[in-house]
Design a binder for these strands. Structure first.
Length: 450
DNA sequence: TTATTCGGAAATTAAAAACA
DNA sequence: GTTTTTAATTTCCGAATAAT
């Protein structure tokens, strides 16, 4: 009872009997002698109950707490799960971030040194696009020159990110890469800026280059060639704006399967799909706008085979959504890229035009197509120049966390039924009890927002 | 007048960095 | 190894606002 006075750091009055309902100030009566009750160093309760937490009011260790008893809400007085406090662990840096094997033919297509832009943002694609306009843009369009980049931020922590299955390249009509989405890092190990100003064909296994080029020529009304103004404009646009298909772009889009170079020198198998983007005003119905045409290249990982997803049945009377729309939702719902389709015999990927919508494998347990024997097996990988294979293996899970803007704050009540986490254990273990915030479904949200 | 909401300070926690 | 710093979380004071 004779709690010692403590006024060091961390000292604070705690909710006492005199506090009553809690909303009255416990630090009253400055003139009176009884000093506010302090408990050495440990001022607050280790975990407030849900109602007190929501009300920003003092709680106590009892359950139900005094305040809830006074409010007549004993049944709601339960501990709530917390996020883990403290400084978060930083993702392990790559051992040798950017000394990598590069495609040997890269220089031949774009010539000479390749500009390296600033690091893409590690947060969202949208941010990356704006960041790209500042960095990639300056160099890509012209001339900003080989900026020296002492440090490139690593991609988001793979351990907490969903696994991306697709990344996108935005290229000129002659396949010169202008922009890349950050998911490329998790899928290939290459940083987005490493693609910039190179040719898409540089990154494709020789056995598939012809097919990819043929798919490009299957696109209607593209005379090739790049326009510097178009390139500059592409850099300024957000990825979402670039993704939209040009007016008159017929579906299915041309696509081929191809092995894409990984940072460790090996190849991964992707379905490469192309369409003309509308972000700069190009319309296939208006030839005069085609000077603003560019290409959106979506690369969908085809390996490893994944179990069949839950079937997606298109709504009656609606056509299948475009691939770009799938790509836009890629990080969020990777299982929704391809609606289920009846398996069909695969036609040659190198047929010049009207390439078919890629048939889905119907082999058991295989969601995406297995590698087609139209391609010879890729050559044995050259010895990797950087020991990042281990990272890439782990990096198969990676990519930015999907941002969920606009989640109503009132969602707390829908997810915080105290019965869900009825047993929280001793209060001092509250932080460790239960999965941190995963019960709320979104670890990126701060708990106080709930 | 009372109850409720909420901004923000202070406290707490844990990992990283610095140091011996 | 220990200590300090840093960066995240939490609790809850107290003012503002709403309800009665």
């Amino acid at each position: 009872m004779d709690t010692p006075a403590f006024d060091g750091p961390g000292a604070r009055t705690i909710l006492g009997e005199a506090g009553g309902s809690g909303s009255t100030s416990p630090t009253t009566a400055p003139g009176q002698n009884p000093p506010p009750r302090r408990v050495g160093g440990k001022s607050n309760v280790s975990a407030a109950c849900g109602p007190c937490k929501r009300a920003h009011l003092a709680c106590d260790v009892a359950r139900p707490c005094k305040r809830c008893i006074n409010m007549g809400k004993e049944e709601l007085c339960e501990d709530v799960p917390h996020k883990k406090r403290g400084r978060p662990k930083v993702p392990k840096p790559m051992p040798e971030p950017y000394a990598r094997s590069r495609p040997t033919t890269a220089e031949s297509s774009t010539g000479g040194t390749r500009w390296r832009g600033v690091a893409p943002s590690t947060t969202t694609e949208a941010t990356q696009s704006s960041g790209g306009s500042g960095g990639v843009g300056a160099g890509g369009s012209g001339g900003g020159g080989p900026s020296t980049i002492p440090y490139l931020a690593p991609p988001p922590d793979p351990s907490v990110s969903p696994s991306p299955q697709v990344f996108e390249l935005f290229t000129t009509t002659d396949l010169k890469i202008i922009r890349v989405t950050t998911a490329c890092y998790a899928l290939t190990g290459f940083h987005p800026h490493e693609y910039v100003n190179s040719s898409l064909l540089d990154w494709i296994h020789p056995s598939a280059k012809y097919a990819v080029d043929a798919a490009r020529h299957a696109l209607p009304a593209l005379s090739g060639g790049s326009n510097r103004a178009t390139e500059a404009a592409m850099i300024r646009l957000a990825n979402d704006d670039l993704r939209s298909p040009a007016e008159g772009m017929p579906e299915p889009y041309p696509n081929v399967d191809a092995h894409i170079l990984r940072a460790d020198g090996a190849y991964r198998f992707f379905n490469v799909r192309l369409h003309v983007g509308a972000g700069l005003g190009a319309s296939l119905w208006r030839p005069e706008t085609l000077e603003h045409a560019y290409l959106v290249i979506s690369l969908l990982l085809q390996e490893p085979p994944r179990p069949p997803p839950t079937p997606i049945t298109p709504l009656a009377g609606q056509s299948l959504p475009s691939f770009s729309s799938f790509a836009a939702a890629a990080e969020a719902r990777p299982q929704a890229y391809y609606p289920q389709q009846p398996p069909t015999a695969r036609s040659s990927v190198s047929s010049s035009s009207a390439l078919p919508y890629p048939p889905r494998s119907h082999s058991p347990g295989s969601y995406f197509r297995p590698p087609m024997n139209a391609y010879p097996p890729p050559p044995p990988p050259p010895p990797p120049s950087a020991p990042n294979g281990a990272y890439l293996a782990a990096g198969d899970i990676g990519g930015p966390l999907p941002v969920r803007p606009g989640v109503p704050l009132g969602a707390y009540r829908q997810t915080s039924d105290p019965r869900i986490h009825a047993v929280a254990g001793p209060s001092h273990l509250g932080a460790a009890a239960g999965p941190p915030s995963s019960a709320h479904g979104d670890p990126s949200r701060r708990t106080w927002e709930l």
